[in-house]
Design a protein around this nucleic acid. Structure first.
Lengths: 224, 224
DNA sequence: GAACATCTCCACCTTTTGGGGGAGATGTGA
DNA sequence: TCACATCTCCCCCAAAAGGTGGAGATGTTC
């Protein structure tokens, strides 16, 4: 039995969702809340499997409440944001807060039920338009490096290694140490790769490495 | 009327999908193809609205065919990848090729129909697990900059501007010109921001800018 | 008004970087 | 074998970068 909590400041909406869900044999509405603060308390008290969360609420909005609930170490529940609007800002904040779903209130009832089941099974459910935008963003990042990657292929293996080290913020001396070669050799490689790539200095080289995908945000190879 | 094309090398599977779709009043199967090559020709000849594309096929796989079809300048159709497996490599290649959907063959028939309608309306449809992974990747990138963004706030407005310029690969002289200040002033700002952020040189500053989200891949503010 | 932050600039100095040119060792392929 | 690419290292030199300390001109805040 899936235990669901519904959070919305409008009692009418809240009851409506609750009725739809309670109508399903394998779903029960275990709790309701009208504000973010209430939601946090209720989540703690009733330990639901799934939380349907509105964004616009008095006291504390749904995104903040979602973040608070999910960052609790023993949190096992999953959150679906259920709202009327879908500006990018909300979506990003929701995903960062850890939401597993972001659906609009204009979906048909059966889709809401489907979303709850999907998320309960470990999947994620986004409104189609949001999925579309997420994909676009993703594809754009991947596409960015295409032309630049071709230039990358003109480098020798060693030069690429040096470029990677540069992109990790290393100085020539540190690169020499890391690659077990002399500092003079590093300088040779640096000069060579800069001229091959048409770059002026190592700062541009770092930019290039990120833009073409050689370096990626969040890798944490960085020494600071 | 939505005109759909089904591409799969197994005739039985292909006919099965076609029958499911033809059963809907607003959908008709306008063409079928058994290989990537055939798919490209058929797409050109029949101009379907939606293409359901298998990946594993002889002659040319579905991802390659998708890319070819969508990169045609007059391409108006949208592609849903329909496969048995979902390794990350396939998903990324599919999204990069421009697919609007990626669903697994084990979904219920009504979900397939729903996916077709969703994509036809301009949305996107991914298998729940894939959506989940896409979100995770996204959240990870966003999360990366959290700690670093706090350090960013210790900078003054001017210092942040200089940092942005550094992250665009500009030299001190170029920054001076861009901000209408003297080169000496730029050096002051650079020294100051490096020490505030605990960085050693401008190369590390570029890394920092990317890691904390001040600079983003694909912005193309870069001068090379 | 005094303390403070910010932005602007200067001089002096050291270190790092990048360019030019050269050279030996190795391996690969024509 | 000979040409070619690659990796290694050297020297010299000029330019850029970074550190230190100082200073005047604004504001803002208490």
């Amino acid at each position: 039995m899936l235990r669901v909590m519904v959070v919305d400041d409008q009692a009418l909406v809240r009851r409506g969702f609750a009725l739809i869900l309670d109508n399903e044999p394998d779903i029960e509405v275990a709790a309701e809340a009208a504000t973010g603060i209430e939601a946090i308390k209720a989540a703690c008290a009733h330990q639901p499997d799934i939380i349907l969360m509105d964004i616009r609420m008095p006291e504390m909005d749904g995104l903040e409440a979602t973040a608070r609930i999910l960052e609790a170490s023993d949190a096992t529940c999953r959150v679906i944001i259920l709202t009327t609007f879908d500006p990018d800002e909300y979506v990003f904040r929701a995903l960062r807060a850890g939401a597993s779903g972001f659906v609009l209130k204009d979906i048909p009832p059966e889709s809401l039920v489907e979303a709850v089941r999907t998320v309960a099974e470990g999947g994620a459910m986004l409104a189609p338009g949001i999925t579309q935008r997420l994909i676009s963003q993703f594809a754009q990042k991947m596409e960015a490096g295409r032309n630049l990657s071709e230039r990358l292929e003109r480098l020798t293996t060693r030069e690429r290694e040096v470029l990677e080290a540069i992109a990790a913020g290393k100085s020539n001396a540190e690169i020499a140490e890391a690659l077990f070669i002399g500092p003079a050799t590093v300088k040779t490689h640096v000069s060579s790769l800069l001229s091959k790539l048409g770059l002026r200095d190592r700062a541009q080289a770092v930019v290039f490495a990120y833009e073409c995908g050689l370096a990626t945000v969040g890798e944490r190879n960085v020494g600071f």
